[in-house]
Design a binder for these strands. Sequence first.
DNA 1: CTGTTAGCGCCTTCAC
DNA 2: GTGAAGGCGCTAACAG
Lengths: 342, 342
Amino acid sequence: MRRARSITIRDVAHEARVSVASASRALNGADGVTEAMRERVLSAARRLRYVPHSGARILSTRRTNTFGVILPDLYGEFFSEIIRGADTAARAHGKHLLLSSSHDGADAVAEVIRSMRGRVDGLLVMSPHIDAQLLADSLADDLPMVLLNTEVEGGRHPCFRVDNYAGAFAAARHLAERARLVAHIAGPLNNSEAEERCRGWRDALGETAGPLLQGDFTEESGFLAGQDLARMSPRPDAVFAANDTMAVGCLAALAEAGIAVPDAMAVAGFDDIPIARLMRPSLTTVSARIADLSRRALERLARLVDTPDTLNDLLETVRPEVIVRGSSRVDPQSRHSNGEQG
Amino acid sequence: MRRARSITIRDVAHEARVSVASASRALNGADGVTEAMRERVLSAARRLRYVPHSGARILSTRRTNTFGVILPDLYGEFFSEIIRGADTAARAHGKHLLLSSSHDGADAVAEVIRSMRGRVDGLLVMSPHIDAQLLADSLADDLPMVLLNTEVEGGRHPCFRVDNYAGAFAAARHLAERARLVAHIAGPLNNSEAEERCRGWRDALGETAGPLLQGDFTEESGFLAGQDLARMSPRPDAVFAANDTMAVGCLAALAEAGIAVPDAMAVAGFDDIPIARLMRPSLTTVSARIADLSRRALERLARLVDTPDTLNDLLETVRPEVIVRGSSRVDPQSRHSNGEQG
DNA sequence: CTGTTAGCGCCTTCAC
DNA sequence: GTGAAGGCGCTAACAG
């Protein structure tokens, strides 16, 4: 546990009997160095187990080789997917990822962003909280930034977003094809994604929209909503949850209440988290390939950092796709469901 | 996108008409500063939208306020849980988290660790790869470090681990109570956790252990194993998967093959990832409360950084617990299963 | 209480 | 090709 003074480039230079400048050049593979000297420096470094101090390098190069990722939370499959996508891209570029959860609230995000100055080259920010607008204003412009599913008017930063409205609209329509009354379990208030999805559901169904249950994206809230649903009369025969996590909770409640899915009640979620496919019945959902989205967002950020370029392609919208699975299949694997010839 | 020269403490000092030192003191809430001056500096900082440059601060304070977390992968519920625990602790201490996946291999880990010098105050490392030993040797001692489920002989670093052997042993025993032949789906080769779990299974059953199927902790490998299992004759009537993810895949394969769980085959996994509870049937598993473990490991790391203290409590082992659920219940919710009066 | 000075470890002109 | 010197932004002695 002894924490000795760590060895610096000076030590290496001394050991190799060259100047610090030359050592630096050799270490960084800069040209203008004799092969002999380079070898001497490198071997000295090896002998001393020299490891460059990133803090110092950051200060002098003004490069951190790190991207900050700010998410509302780090918990659960959804954010795990986002992290995975970002990580994939970061690795590909040899960059680090500085992670932070903001737990909602634009001021919290602003604070986190502040604390990241000087330790990241750029930011990937997801802040679905409705007052993200405040955010935009309080942002320093001196840090490249890419937004993810974050509604901001000013539009100075590239933004990758899922068309939540269209996805929800399609899902609701799908359910309406087989059901008379389609309920909705909404996400948290003041969340722009939740709002868009709710709006999509409502617009898709018009007057025939079923009851609206308030949730908060957690599984538990989905469970409670499922219990409410089970007690209703007339009972809706379909429900669209604003995310998969709530849909999963809802399924559990329905199973407990002895309500058959999809026969007595069809269920659909949103996000296509990995577990959706694995539920029994498997969960119909709306997929936006979120890991892919975050990967591309980080790629974009990397480009932005390298070349603070033109303002084009500021907004990229992904049109999600309904994935029909067991929880809403009209005729659940009757005979060979492959033969779609009529 | 203009990236102006960012404003430094010098600008603030100038604006407030004080020296840089005083500005620094005022900004950092150090005492020995007139209230008037502090106010002047703070307001200047606000006016200029000054944000301190962490890189510089790191260099001069030799403190990064960041912990590095090195995991084999960032993907899936298991690692998501670990991240969550670490994040919880980090937030509580106002620290950042620098995340990195190493994708196995001790040399990869060593490389990642190298690259983290000067940007973290300490490291939380999980490297179940069997040659973690190499790791231990190549480690610089000048960075506080806490290990997670990582087998290293030298024992110079605090280590938090799950007793994989005991957990697997107990799970296998549990299955053996209701089954004649208990198969095992193993994790990847050269993974110490997988090995321990396999050993626990074998020792629990002795000669009566069923077939051993090779997996790699992925859901797909569990699925394939499940298919194999379905074809076997004599067919095992229970299977213990080395992690939940594979168990989930296995369940899917069994369902597809029309094998009833738990009646025709009991299934158990390991880790108690969130989804385990949500499967139908819900998945019997071994829980080590992994999020809690990583949280505590990070707490320990924080203490270690603050006080490079004594070497005691170097190893903390969690004895995991079998959680019996539907996939292995002898009498699946017959009548009111609460009344355990006989 | 405040300002001056000297680094933190590294990179990068600029002379030689 | 190589070395000396200055500076990145900030903090931490030390004087005043």
